[in-house]
Design a protein around this nucleic acid. Structure first.
Lengths: 169, 169
DNA sequence: AATAAATACGTGACAAGTCATATATTTTCT
DNA sequence: AGAAAATATATGACTTGTCACGTATTTATT
């Protein structure tokens, strides 16, 4: 009974080591670290948020687009943009207008001030990508992206599929 | 002027395609999907949260440990555990007591009910890992983990390092 | 021994995601 | 044309993660 209540450092270390090879757990920690690094960098690059940076970048590269386009490009929920865009408009970074052809859509465009904000953050975020390019060769990066494609396909499977599949076997 | 205000579908599609090879952006979307899948599965496996599942699992494998041990094993902030553990104790899943050797520490242990909750969720989460094993060979998985080790080392670099490095070059 | 520094944990505030639901506008069907 | 279905966006509620700061306890220093 008492033995079960004891803290066993070796056993705990073994557990931590096992966790290192758990892809799901690793993704959580790695993404959290990646996000924090981006936030820190953007603090230097004009004090904008990650969502704002993505939006400036997408609008700069893709030109004016709807909120749905932005959500699709960023693989995120449109609600995140619904919340961020009014603030960005207030800061003068983007302009928004109802689409002429389809009144449900909102067309978002970069303003001059938005372009300035992009130019301010871009070198910093570009440096980051350049540094990442020193960590992986082109071939390795392609391989990693390929792995991630497969992993993403897996995690997008509905929970049902995963449970059913095992039942059948 | 008007041209700049037009939504250009081809250009937007090109932007979305470019985003596919952006590791940072991909990580965000993939982890979000992974988390959602885990939440859905845990809904079936006893209705526990991800933090609760991790904690049950770690305690089951690693035995009684401190809150700090749990945070380290899960590579997460201790605050997350500080919030989750009182609820878990209230549900009767874990017991907590002040460490004898060090009064600052709290030793967390699995209760019988906690073991039951683990046994309930484990088959489902185990099935998930088994299914992932069908997606990657052992060698591929090792390679992927190796890539992630390197990526993690990169995203854990302080923002300063990344900016300074480029200045020097 | 007394003080200073480090450590463990609790808690408030926030960012970035998710979903569900509501509303306005289009599109489709009869 | 009118009704029904689909779509685009807004919004509230929630989870998972971060940091900063406060307090209690332990360890180190003088």
């Amino acid at each position: 009974m008492t033995g079960d209540q004891e803290r066993d450092v070796k056993r705990i270390e073994a557990r931590a080591e096992a966790a290192r090879t758990n892809l799901f757990g690793r993704m959580a920690a790695i993404y959290a670290a990646s996000r924090k690094q981006a936030q820190d960098l953007l603090q230097v690059g004009g004090g904008i948020s990650i969502v704002e940076w993505r939006t400036l970048w997408d609008l700069h590269e893709g030109g004016p687009m709807t909120i749905g386009d932005l959500a699709l490009t960023q693989s995120t929920d449109h609600s995140q943009l619904s919340r961020a865009l009014p603030q960005m408009r207030q800061k003068g970074l983007v302009s928004m207008r109802q689409a002429a052809q389809d009144g449900r859509q909102t067309i978002v465009s970069l303003t001059d001030r938005g372009r300035e904000a992009y130019q301010c953050a871009m070198p910093i975020m570009g440096t980051r990508r350049a540094c990442l390019g020193d960590v992986f060769t082109k071939a390795e990066m392609e391989e990693l992206i390929g792995f991630l494609d497969r992993f993403e396909a897996f995690v997008r499977r509905p929970a049902k599929d995963i449970l059913w599949k095992e039942e059948v076997e």
